[in-house]
Amino acid sequence: MPVILTSRSASRITGFLLIALLASGCVTTRVEQFVIDAPLIAAGESVVLLSNRQDAVVETEDSFLDCLYGRLKGMKGSVQIISEDQFKDELFPWFESRLAPTRAESVGILLEQPHIKSKADALGVRYLVWIHGESDATNKQGSMSCSFSPAGGGCFGMLSWDNNSSYEATIWDLKDSKSLGIISSQSTGTSVMPALIVPIPIIARTKGASCRGLGDQLVTVLSGES
């Protein structure tokens, strides 16, 4: 059944959607990096992004990995970025949680097995980037009530909460079986949602900010771009 919208109501809805999309809370991001003399990656070498899934409590969201993957894909040159799924499938099951190496030195031992080494060599993998961390919402405050009736409806009240995103990337060099360093990114912000008939979410997008911060530093370290 078609819903008939007048031009006035359509413009109201459009306006509301624009406000909801554009409104975002303030976010503070702190990135800690390490300095290297020269870009790590050479032409023809590959980088793998992996999430540390051995932690029983913290597990990095797939959406964060997708975001980081997208940023690294934008690197110049012929650097190939291999996704977690592809790498885990190619070396199945050695990077499943039960077997995944927990130290860079353990990768060297794993690669001593010829059939595993030949697979890794075929992919041209030089660096593993382990991502660990997650985003959460804390300190939820306020209240909101909504009611609807045949005559109409609406919501009244105010909600607020703190968004925190904390991630770190540990870079392992597979050639030398050693850890090169850790880059970390922490973003905090407060989201609010006032409602006067219609709730307007003003979200602090900390996960996106952390992705940008960590992604930019990884690009700098790997390729030398800034």
């Binding site: 199945f92 099951p93 050695w94 499943e96 949680s97 039960r98 077997l99």
Partner: peptide
């Protein structure tokens, strides 16, 4: 699916 893949990891090791 993750549990099935974990079963594979247990079997091959």
């Amino acid at each position: 699916v993750t549990a099935l893949r974990d079963a594979a990891a247990a079997l091959v090791t």
